[in-house]
């Protein structure tokens, strides 16, 4: 530290110190006993108000940021709740439609009691998809710590999406119904005829093992039969879009389109704590 000149304390400095201390003490006593210095305090307070305002700015910004984030978070939470509600209502509607149709056909004896309501429903968000273009696999943001296990059925608001293929701590891979490796036992809602649908790897399904003697037509809805114990019965799976007969074959060549929006759904519904699913993983 360098200075151009220095000096020792002069008498003036001593007197200034004494005067400042005396004035301070007088002010302290006056402020304690009277209201005389109130105006001086108000004046100084006004003078430093801009400084205090500046000092509060960061805190205000942080506060406003927190408030915006909180509001946004609350809205997001509300939207999530509403989406869950829509999913639940859609799923209940699907189930009731299915039950009504079963009642209409007087085929209750063949029906398998729906187990959808026996489990806990969990909503997952699709966060990624398989880098392999030949596989129909998506990743959701729910994993082992959410109670997800391999083999659980996965739905969206329209119908069956697929099943849980693999699980890690916080995420799971879902094998979509349209994957080549996916096979689901189904029945035709209108007639009750049973078959198995298999994904074709290209957003369509093939209904297999449906005899040519069976009554089937375009627009028929296929739902899970529940016979394999993996999927609860009554979940809509696909809608028949074309029927062909192949010479020499005793089965129809039926093409169906998944009712679930496998390519565009963002939220999926998982049934957990239901009857223990078959944990066998289907591999291509």
């Amino acid at each position: 530290m360098s200075v151009s000149s220095t000096r020792s304390l002069s008498n003036q400095d001593h007197w200034q110190f004494v005067a400042a201390c005396a004035l301070s003490l007088i002010l302290m006593v006056t402020d304690e006993q009277t209201q005389v210095v109130m105006e001086a305090r108000m004046f100084l307070s006004s003078a430093i108000q801009p400084l205090e305002w500046l000092a509060r700015l960061p805190e205000n910004w942080i506060g406003q940021g927190n408030r915006v984030l909180t509001e946004r978070s609350a809205l997001t939470s509300e939207i999530d709740k509403l989406r869950l509600q829509v999913l639940l209502l859609s799923q209940q509607l699907q189930q009731s439609q299915s039950i009504n149709q079963e009642n209409d056909r007087l085929r209750m004896l063949l029906g398998v009691a729906s187990r959808i309501n026996q489990g806990k429903l969990l909503v997952g968000i699709i966060v990624d998809h398989s880098p392999d273009p030949f596989r129909q696999i998506v990743r959701i943001n729910k994993g082992l710590r959410d109670g997800i296990i391999t083999g659980l059925p996965v739905m969206d608001a329209q119908g069956l999406m697929g099943q849980v293929l693999s699980v890690n701590l916080s995420e799971s891979d879902i094998l979509l119904v349209s994957d080549l490796a996916m096979q689901i036992p189904v029945r035709v809602v209108r007639t009750g005829a049973r078959g198995i649908v298999q994904g074709d790897g290209n957003n369509e399904l093939n209904l297999k093992f449906l005899p040519t003697t069976s009554n089937i037509r375009e627009g028929d809805l296929l739902e899970t039969s529940g016979l394999d114990g993996r999927y609860p019965s009554g979940i809509p799976v696909a809608e028949v879009i074309s029927i062909k007969s192949q010479a020499g074959s005793v089965f129809w060549q039926v093409t169906a389109q998944p009712v679930a929006k496998v390519g565009s759904s963002r939220e999926v519904l998982l049934l957990i704590n239901q009857t223990k699913p078959n944990t066998e993983v289907i591999t291509p």
Binding site: A20, S24, L25, L27, M28, D31, E32, A40, R41, L44
Partner: peptide
Amino acid sequence: HDVLYHTGMGTYAL
């Protein structure tokens, strides 16, 4: 500082 910290006038001055 007395104004800022709401102490008696002259306290921090002293």
